[in-house]
Design a protein around this nucleic acid. Structure first.
Lengths: 150, 150
DNA sequence: CCGAATCCTCCCCGATACTG
DNA sequence: CAGTATCGGGGAGGATTCGG
């Protein structure tokens, strides 16, 4: 059967994937917490009083996040035991997100990273512009050289 | 034309995007350094003697990274002034990547995060399994309830 | 009004082949 | 050894719609 081959391929691929995960399972976790929104959300929660915030508070605090990504990220954080989700079935509905002890721990680290980004933004920006300028100059030089050759 | 509408949309979207970047430029930088490969590469370089490594040393040290991602990430890090690239035009060619002072600074933070991931992996993993089990149980219960209702 | 689910597009990333 | 160019798939994520 042709499908048999495809299945075999799938199995093989899955085995390889599992082998990779077994080889380095922490890379998976690192990738999760290295997510852009994770950093912003956990930092925001870490700065809040009682490490607690409502859903729309987070939405307003973090500029440019869509509801989808907010929900998605919060769900994955809840799944990993980093935040706790509390639903208060009043009208209108109220949902609070709170950093767990584990999450609070990570929050310190990610806040440091966020802080670093804010502190060194100018420096990085300067480096970036200089580098781009040099690259443009090199390109221009190369182009001029090509012109001269032509 | 229909394409005109699409173009207008693109322009609009781009304007909104630029406005967002101007509103919160540090989010941009945070997203960059929150990249999965950035974390791994900078940590690896941070652990190395002299904070220096060759291209293929990095490739071997970091499991599952493709040459493309390695090159791409190193380029962006170089552009941001976090790593320095040194070419030694011998045969065979030799290229060394080295953390700058700025990058070394960040390296400490990212190494901490990586360390955290390694230390708390079991904990997170346990939370994850428990959460998944509860979700499955809830689903089963809901299904049973539906069956009973029917 | 707040929070979640759906659709659809674009971009990121991995695999492959080729240069110096 | 150290990259660069190209293609194709899959998933991220934004706009929109639905539920309570």
């Amino acid at each position: 059967m042709a499908t048999r081959t495809a299945e075999a391929h799938r199995e093989e691929a899955r085995a390889a994937y599992d082998a990779f995960l077994k080889e380095c399972p922490t890379a998976q976790l690192l990738a999760r917490i290295s997510d852009k929104w994770v950093g912003l959300i956990v930092s925001a929660l870490g700065q809040a009083e009682d490490r607690t915030m409502r859903y729309s508070e987070l939405g307003r605090k973090i500029p440019g996040v869509s509801q989808k990504m907010l929900t998605q990220t919060l769900r994955s954080l809840e799944r990993d035991g980093l935040v706790a989700r509390t639903v208060t079935p009043t009208v209108p509905l109220r949902v609070d997100y709170r950093l767990t002890e584990l999450g609070s721990n990570l929050g310190c680290l990610l806040s440091s990273v966020k802080q670093w980004a804010e502190n060194h933004f100018d420096e990085v920006s300067a480096h970036r512009e200089r580098h781009d300028a040099e690259a443009a100059g090199a390109d221009a030089g190369a182009a001029a050289g090509a012109d001269a050759a032509a």
